[in-house]
Write a protein that binds this DNA or RNA. Structure first.
Length: 773
DNA sequence: TTCTTCACGCTTTTT
DNA sequence: GCGTGAAGAA
């Protein structure tokens, strides 16, 4: 046992010799196998809720406790900062303060960035390189696209950024880009633009996120001595969420693991939901081929969900092909069945869910135990509106990141430009922010000169400020700006950087401009800036702060403690769990997303199904799925069919309830529907086959019938499902304008259609005609 | 240079 | 439905 290790670890190690070490107590046999298989390649297939993080952290503790490695000899990689933070915390709980020595615990990108800082010169960068965020990247690409005389409207910088990111994820530098790939952009100019972009980055001494890994790979491949050093350094490698690794990450890992092969990858092929950003489920599927002699451990005992929730999720995911296959089981009781509810439209859905939440809350369930998991963010609005109306506390998790907000990026651009004068992207961003009379024409002039002379924009601006090429007013504005910049630069040493930022924001007129701004967001922006200044205090140097900003895009524990319902996308719910989970919007085209299926076919559909699986398995006690017959998408009404996933749920674990009555599409729910006492919903294109509305036949899912259509009786409009519907009609020569109610349309008996309105508290029932054919 | 208007487009998201 | 970004007007 090396002396430098903490007494705590030695103690654990001794315990290991005699009795079972206490950190191993309570592990089930599978988990224990995963912890103790220390040598050689190991794949841990950890199903949802099987105690993955526990195994992961215990395994690290075990390696340390048994003296196999010291903390700084462990490389532990995660995808998100949050996961890295959690891992570090939990290891600290086991081994105590010695966890400080875990220098190499972090995200792929943060570790790659550290390695790159040490060897930047070997790949043609300076160690002071800046990491560009996606916004910088897009602006840079836009310049390149325009410089190449390509129509930037048809071939957007965003699309090119997407392609380049994709290429980098697959480990393709410009030289290695397969010729067919370049054709995806601007009739084959993609490859040239990619190469030009990489050239520009080198000149700017900058990297994008993908470069961090790509440069690492180049570095390892071209400098075996450097790689050998890291082989000695990292004796054990551990990777979390392996199913989400892309090719570049895989190559990086394989290079680092190739000498000793002590690599342990933990993941779940059924939870691979990031294919669209380069994740290769194949990485986990072919692990045993890539790492011969690998030990494979399956964690199949679930500690999180009731048997019904687990059954529903397992039944659904069974429809996917090409799985490694796991059989999750639990000793928890059956619990509530997963409830599937059909509703009239998105508004009804939010109403039903909000009511259910209030009900649960009355019965003692805290709001924070409830989550609403949506496929796409446009679904969130209906819930927000309803919750605001009811004053039901909620938080939207995810959403625009703090560091992506315009005011924050402006402030950071000021700091970046203070830090290094030749950060042209920062220069461009703030040269006329706040507006100081230096317009587009002047800026282009500066940039053109900079480009022509191969100097930085700041330097070019200095030159221009001394000539009479610019109008006098612009010239003074520019001179003032440059003088201010110099003054602030002079204060870097003397002033604390948080204080410096405050000074800059005041003196540049940025805060003044915001104070004068009467838009409602201006106040929040000012507060955000205050928060930024505060958060800067935690960093010793300006450069360490800027590095943090680039790699850690979220601000820790903001608004975490409040008791509110959590609304988030399914993607951001991965890794979380809640007692009560609502899964709204299970409609074909919404979930599974139409685009996913269109673009990726069967593969895309399977990923959507995994997303559904992730959704259900977030629930501990209760999962409630819902779908609407009609939905407003981007301001347009659309008729919806229930998701095929609804029909794939095993009936044994599902309870079909209905607000409005529902006639299901697939065999599963059809059977369930036959048991309902309520008659099927009438309305939308979503109705029972064989019913006729007025003279118009509505066979099954007649696409011609839309939400905005109205039900007419005796020549008069009596009901519509459009909440904002109004109609104008003429009676005795006078024109009447009438607003109509909005409600649940329900078929009661014979040919009478009942429409009940509950708008504005008013309940009204209208009978009208419907013929049965 | 800045203000105004109109067209467009728009899953998921981490670093 | 709404925010963005580009083109035209003041």
């Amino acid at each position: 046992m090396p002396e430098s290790l903490s007494p705590r670890i030695s103690e654990l190690a001794r315990a290991d010799g005699g009795r079972e070490a206490d950190y191993l107590a309570g592990l089930n046999p599978e988990q224990r196998r995963a912890v103790e298989a220390t040598e050689g390649p190991v794949l841990v297939l950890a199903g949802a809720g099987t105690g993955k993080t526990r195994v992961l952290t215990t395994r690290l503790a075990h390696i340390l406790a048994t003296g196999r490695a010291r903390p700084w000899e462990l490389l532990a990689v995660t995808f998100t900062n949050k996961a890295a933070r959690e891992m570090r915390e939990r290891i600290t709980n086991i081994i105590g303060p010695q966890a400080e020595g875990l220098r190499w615990t972090g995200t792929f990108h943060s570790i790659a960035a550290q390695i790159l800082r040490r060897h930047a010169e070997l790949v043609g960068l300076k160690s002071s390189y800046t990491i560009l965020d996606p916004d910088d990247v897009e602006r840079l690409l836009k310049q390149l696209i325009e410089a190449a005389n390509i129509d930037a409207k048809r071939w957007t910088p965003r699309a090119l950024a997407g392609h380049i990111d994709n290429w980098k994820n697959r480990g393709w530098s410009p030289e290695r880009l397969p010729p067919s790939e370049g054709g995806h952009f601007a009739e084959g100019k993609g490859a040239i633009l990619y190469a030009a972009y990489q050239e520009r980055l080198k000149v700017l001494n900058a990297c994008d996120f993908g470069d961090l890994l790509l440069h690492n790979i180049t570095l390892f491949q071209k400098h075996p001595d450097v790689l050998a050093d890291y082989h000695r350094r990292f004796r054990y490698i551990l990777v979390d969420e392996y199913q989400d690794t892309n090719v570049a990450q895989y190559l990086w890992l394989r290079l680092l693991a190739q000498s000793h092969g002590n690599v342990c990858c933990v993941g779940d092929d059924d939870q691979s939901i990031y294919g669209w950003r380069g994740a290769e489920v194949d990485n986990i599927l072919r692990f045993e081929r890539d790492f011969p002699g690998a030990t494979v451990v399956k964690l199949e005992r679930n500690y999180r969900s009731t048997a019904n929730i687990l059954g529903a999720a397992s039944g659904l995911i069974a429809a996917n092909k090409g799985r490694l296959g796991k059989t999750l089981w639990t000793e928890l009781p059956g619990g509530e069945k997963v409830r599937v509810t059909g509703v009239w439209d998105g508004e009804a859905e939010s109403r039903v869910i909000a009511d259910a939440i209030e009900d649960a809350h009355r019965k003692g369930r805290p709001y924070r135990d409830v989550a609403i998991l949506v496929r796409a963010s446009f679904q969130m609005r209906a819930f927000e509106e309803r919750f605001i109306l009811l004053q039901l506390p909620y938080v939207v998790v995810g959403g625009p990141r703090f560091f992506e907000r315009a005011e924050i990026r402006d402030a950071i651009a000021y700091m970046r430009l203070v830090q290094s004068e030749d950060d042209d992207l920062a220069f461009e961003r703030i040269i006329n922010t706040p507006k100081r009379g230096i317009g587009d024409t002047s800026v282009s002039k500066i940039l053109a000169i900079a480009r022509g002379n191969g100097v930085s924009a700041s330097l070019a601006a200095r030159g221009l400020a001394n000539t009479d090429e610019l109008p006098a007013r612009t010239r003074t504005a520019l001179a003032t700006f440059l003088r201010d910049m110099d003054r602030w630069r002079g204060q870097v040493e003397t002033l604390q950087h948080a204080r410096l930022l405050e000074t800059i924001l005041e003196e540049s007129g940025y805060t003044d401009a915001l104070r004068l701004d009467k838009t409602p967001t201006a106040q929040t922006r000012l507060e955000n800036l205050k928060e930024l200044v505060q958060s800067m205090g935690a960093f010793d140097t300006l450069s360490s702060f800027l590095e943090h900003v680039a790699l850690v895009m979220d601000l820790e524990n903001r608004g975490a403690a409040e008791d509110s319902v959590q609304i988030m996308t399914l993607h951001s719910a991965k890794g979380l769990e809640f007692p009560l989970v609502f899964l709204p919007g299970w409609e074909e085209g919404v979930f599974p997303s139409q685009r996913s299926v269109d673009e990726k076919g069967e593969k895309g559909l399977e990923e959507e199904r995994r997303l559904a699986y992730v959704g259900i398995t977030r629930a501990r006690e209760e999962a409630r799925i819902s779908f609407a017959a009609n939905r407003m998408v981007y301001g347009r009404w659309t008729t919806q069919l229930p998701s095929r996933f609804v029909d794939e749920l095993p009936l044994a674990n599902v309870d079909a309830a209905s607000e409005t009555g529902y006639y299901g599409a697939g065999p599963g729910l059809k059977e369930a529907a036959s048991r309902w006492d309520e008659a099927p919903t009438f309305g939308g294109g979503y109705t029972s086959p064989g019913w006729r509305r007025g003279q118009q036949t509505m066979a099954g899912r007649d696409p011609g019938f839309r939400q905005r259509d109205v039900i007419e009786g005796k020549g008069k409009l009596v009901a519509t499902s459009d909440p904002k519907a109004e109609s104008t009609y003429t009676k005795g020569g006078r024109v009447f304008h009438q607003k109509f109610g909005y409600g649940v349309i329900r078929l009661v008996e014979g040919n009478k259609l009942t429409v009940s309105f509950d708008k504005a508290g008013e309940k009204k029932v209208i009978d009208t005609f419907v013929e049965r054919v």
